[in-house]
Design a protein around this nucleic acid. Structure first.
Lengths: 350, 350
DNA sequence: TGGTGGGTTGAAAACGTTTTCAAGAACGTT
DNA sequence: AACGTTCTTGAAAACGTTTTCAACCCACCA
């Protein structure tokens, strides 16, 4: 192949030009203080002159440390996941790491395949946002590889590895509480994919609030985490409630679109809330009241935890759960008697 | 460190267990047909038993081929860039490549730094979406590295390397033509960062259309490619035109927001168009009329071109320019005499 | 029977580093 | 003057592969 013939500015050529041994060159690079000033300067000049850069591959082989960490996320196109990745990168970058980012397209088989590929690429650590509800071969693959791993945002609950996530349950409970406290009496909950941990946790939060306040007039509908799903489920509604709770912002936005088409005004006739506070939600008309997750922070912390693992420190908290905030915008309206009469009238119409 | 002591399931252990030489094991892995059936089976069983996976680092060092390609994009959080990356990945994945994705945060210094890092990581190819208008050290860094590189979506025009992009000029010209043809007579163009190739090309398309139709009543304002920029520039407008042309969708959406606040209705008072057809644009109210770019395809083709480069084939087309489509939604309204009177009246008000 | 040739195999070199080890120099102490 | 110490340096081993080379075996042919 003669592939590296041309590219042969290696440590040897530097040593030759500087008139020293390769050991000395290596030392100048890795621990400059241990070599005399004269040689150090000569070597530095030679490096400069040749434009030499150490071959990381060779270095990795020798030291066993690649300084690269991998990410496995369900969808490489979803800005939310990427914002987490960025958080982790921002932390780990300063520690000198490089990054491989892989998307599974929500496919569990792809997930285990990527895991194996990353392992043979000798990454030192992996941050995973799980693609499915369960992945049986996951634990086995990790087990004896010696790689450090942390779950971010979504985890496999039967695998005992560090996890950084968000309190979906408490977040959803909080925003549902808000609806109850502002006088809403009837609810529809539009869930996303029922086998994901986030869908399950959020629904749990909604149910807790219902139970806590003794609300009986609610209905739970299952769909997907998409605009279209919210739209379709809402269109099929026989009875319009005072409040619609979306499993995420997309679902909520879809619901609003459907409600508008059906002749209802948000929030005058119906209140709607979402979950995520995605980029667009603040620009929607009316602005969506929703739950903000500290997405970037979650990634940042996951990066920090991974680094602790990598540098052999004890990780004090193997599980970190971040709290959410409620973002008040314009899709929730305080209900009182006269309002309630209005929606009741509307119900008769529909 | 004793780091790899535990992890020492290497080719040697397999050879030992199977009772053959390491050469034979290597051959079983890389060219099974060249070793006798008996040994082949024995080796395979040993591999299975030990759960052996070849060390890619060592393999890379020896062969000089890492089978990884790098991406450098301005913003790792922008779905549009990621969709391109996905396109390229989908093509190259099947050829057995791995991926390193880096974001520069629109910073040219970071860009060259990443370039160097990727090179020392011995990636075989790089796909770059340029961060700035010019990067002087770029060419020099690439030059003697022997790495294969292709520009995607944005390029440095003074560097002669393969490029896959979109016909920004024609796209913007087309949608401006549409505005003229639907009776619009006065225009404001809100540009993004003036030093990027996309901003320049799109503005050129707008100007071509103005010239072609002999329109004199237009104004060009420079800002950034963000929602806020569109909002602020619009707020400062002294005279509201019949049509606002955004440098991209975000800018257009910001303009609409500002117009609404200023008491103008889109599209009844003013038409607005964008460029990109990003995910949110179809959900905005009213739906944004814009220019769709074949983003995924662009990445896919960039991946294909890079692969041709990598496998030593001649690349027939060093420059590939893809065409755009116009997406008609609700932000453009046909103008006639009575409409024109309306906007004139409004102008007096402002 | 001796030579030719193809098919299988193992020993050893090579990839470009880091790191261990020992040698030598310089210096201070007895 | 002999002896430690410390500092600086180079030779060589090691990391885990792939690949070259030569050796061997066996069959075939003259």
């Amino acid at each position: 192949m003669a592939k590296q013939r041309n590219n042969s500015i290696n440590i040897k050529s530097v040593a030759q030009l500087a008139g020293v041994s390769i050991s000395t060159v290596s030392r100048v690079i890795n621990s400059p203080e241990s070599v005399s000033e004269e040689l150090r300067e000569r070597v530095r000049k030679a490096i400069e002159e040749l434009g030499y850069r150490p071959n990381q591959i060779a270095r990795s082989l020798r030291t066993g440390s690649t300084k690269v960490v991998g990410f496995i996320i369900p969808d490489i196109t979803n800005p939310a996941f990427l914002l987490m990745v960025k958080g982790a990168e921002d932390y780990l970058k300063r520690k000198g790491y490089m990054f491989i980012v892989c998307g599974t397209d929500h496919n569990i088989e792809e997930e285990t395949k990527l895991l194996k590929t990353l392992l043979s690429q000798s990454v030192e650590g992996i941050i995973v946002t799980c693609s499915g509800g369960r992945n049986s071969s996951f634990a086995k693959t990790i087990q004896d590889s010696g790689v450090k791993l942390v779950f971010m945002d979504r985890r496999y609950e039967d695998i005992d590895l560090p996890y950084v996530g968000v309190d979906n349950t408490a977040g959803m409970e909080k925003i549902t509480d808000l609806l109850v406290q502002t006088g809403h009496r009837s609810f529809v909950y539009l869930s996303g994919e029922r086998n994901t941990s986030s869908a399950k946790e959020r629904l749990r939060g909604f149910m807790k609030s219902m139970k806590k306040h003794g609300v009986k007039d609610y209905q739970v509908l299952y769909g997907r985490f998409t605009f279209e799903s919210g739209y379709e489920l809402t269109k099929k509604l026989k009875k319009i409630p005072e409040a619609v709770v979306g499993g995420n912002d997309l679902v909520a936005l879809g619901a609003i679109e459907a409600l508008n088409e059906m002749g209802y005004h948000v929030p005058d006739d119906v209140s709607v809330v979402g979950f995520d506070d995605m980029f667009y939600s603040k620009y929607s008309k009316p602005g969506l009241t929703t739950v903000r997750q500290p997405i970037y922070e979650m990634g940042y912390i996951a990066g920090k935890v991974l680094w602790q693992l990598l540098s052999g420190k004890n990780v004090r908290k193997r599980v970190t759960i971040l709290q959410t905030d409620i973002v008040l915008r314009e899709t929730v309206k305080e209900r009182n008697a006269s309002d309630r009469r209005l929606t009741e009238k509307v119900e008769v119409v529909s």
